[in-house]
Design a protein around this nucleic acid. Sequence first.
DNA 1: CGCTTCGATTAGAGCGCTCTAATCTGTAGC
DNA 2: GCTACAGATTAGAGCGCTCTAATCGAAGCG
Lengths: 330, 330
Amino acid sequence: MQDVANEAGVSRALVSLVMRDSPKVSEHRRILVQQTADRLGYRPNAAARNLAQSRSNTIGVILNDLHNPFFADAVDGIQAEAEEHGFHLLLSSANLNPEIERKSMATFAEHRMDAIIVLGSNAPHEDLVDVSGGAPVVSVGRTIRDADAVLNDDERGGELATQHLIELGHTSILHLDGGTGAGADARLRGYLQTMKESELQPWVIHGDYTEDTANKAIAALFATTEKLPTAIFAANDFSAVGVLEQLRSQGVSVPTDISVVGYDNTTFAGLGHVSLTTVNQQTRQMGHLAMRCVLERLNGRRATVTQVLEPELIPRRTTAATAFNQRKLA
Amino acid sequence: MQDVANEAGVSRALVSLVMRDSPKVSEHRRILVQQTADRLGYRPNAAARNLAQSRSNTIGVILNDLHNPFFADAVDGIQAEAEEHGFHLLLSSANLNPEIERKSMATFAEHRMDAIIVLGSNAPHEDLVDVSGGAPVVSVGRTIRDADAVLNDDERGGELATQHLIELGHTSILHLDGGTGAGADARLRGYLQTMKESELQPWVIHGDYTEDTANKAIAALFATTEKLPTAIFAANDFSAVGVLEQLRSQGVSVPTDISVVGYDNTTFAGLGHVSLTTVNQQTRQMGHLAMRCVLERLNGRRATVTQVLEPELIPRRTTAATAFNQRKLA
DNA sequence: CGCTTCGATTAGAGCGCTCTAATCTGTAGC
DNA sequence: GCTACAGATTAGAGCGCTCTAATCGAAGCG
């Protein structure tokens, strides 16, 4: 910077102003400085800038599984909104490990991110915000103490999925849950509640929102159970894919033998040869809202806020009436 | 930091040493300082640290499409290797836009990333490294002037895919190319070369490695052509999905009516109900190698290096012998 | 008991930028 | 010609850390 200043015969301060497009620089000087900067190949050092301004213009985003399209959708929403307001995004993948999630949060704090967005946190510990170093934290898909939250009504979503299967005549409905994953407990509650209302026996096995675990859980089911369910409600689309996968390799046909419902309505679910019945939680929109939340915080809002979106059932081709029911209808 | 030093009755320098786990601090002081730091909730400021050390311990990764599992696979490989050596990853999505790709590169340069990895660059301009500000750049999937490269032999891959279809008896083989995408031209060359050797008429339509464009391109094909190909070689898996999608909605059955081959062997392609025949380019491995390349650079290697991996055909269930050929074999 | 040695600690000068407040320049008004 | 004023420019003090070189203190030794 000094070099540029010397070369152009001006002060460092002026160079600084030019680099930041300050309006209070004469046209004449602006061009002069700009040109010498280009000529010398000068690029401002962001670390120094951040230090001096004590802000980074960057939002940290913690996500948990790059392979799960849910996160890609959410990031799309965040990115669109962030770009518009001149913020950069810094992504970090925690790979479903609460420990790494915590560490990512700490790293973001050390880098003095202007704010941190946690997508589908997998951390059951509620003290995540303690390591945020005072930066505003917005959580998508799960409530976290002292953080803003953008949610969808997971309990309602769980009801919708279960209700859908019941209406199709299913009575033996298995729920593959999402373990400690974001919203998993609420989806489970919705399922249990609805089963209870219909006086059906609930049946829950455990997953963790990944395709792999889901696949294995279903394999284990086949290995241990004689009587299979006629329908499976998987806690998210990504596990639903694992379920479909394993059902396929067991020679079970969907939806003829078993119906499957997912949750998230990822881009994936909409594909014609998957065509997964699922619950739409407007993931992209949640990304948008999360970023808006951040902006409000940066503009001075103090109170924590929770926004809840309404889920919606998207019936596709992995669910059908039970054989018994079909006969009845015919 | 000053506060911690005062409180503990030591100098700032010592606090600094403790925060960095320096071996030259007495056990006594280490505990003292650590405790007061915790008590005061002190966290070092990474911006200041980066500035003083003039290094960030962070690798910037530019990727192009969060929805394409190819990138998730590659990042997995990078991350595993990076973690092991104490580097953070900073991801930035360029959304297939060369302009944004360039901007991301500049931003990373300003942030003084220790190195930059470009995954599947979509930029046809070769001067990308000019804006890297001197940081080592490693490109995965495409060569870029003045940057290390980790590639697979795309031309060979194109040959493998095409050869496979020819061996199944296909003569009318369409190639949906990858436009300006990384490796697309080589895959195209492999296709053209193989077709030529078999004295078959090449037939190319244009894509850009996205599902959406692929889908539309095939729709356009149906709208304008009477005679359809019997096989389609899509330049990557993600477009292949778009192709499958559109074929499905046109009521064409795969592989009975039309065979489809992809490229990348993304996790996606292996799913049972997709079961896409594709070319494996060891994406995860490429991520690993890219990170190793970075490490070597940081350890002082000067010369630029190119590594080429061998592609391999993975036959699955989207390809089959032509009807004519099946008759012949029977 | 003074001298060396070596590990532990510290003072103080940067790192490259931004910010505030002060200064400079040129124009206008009287 | 002098003051006023607004816009353009600059000096210089930080921002919070690390690094080098210097200093301190406790053994160890003859």
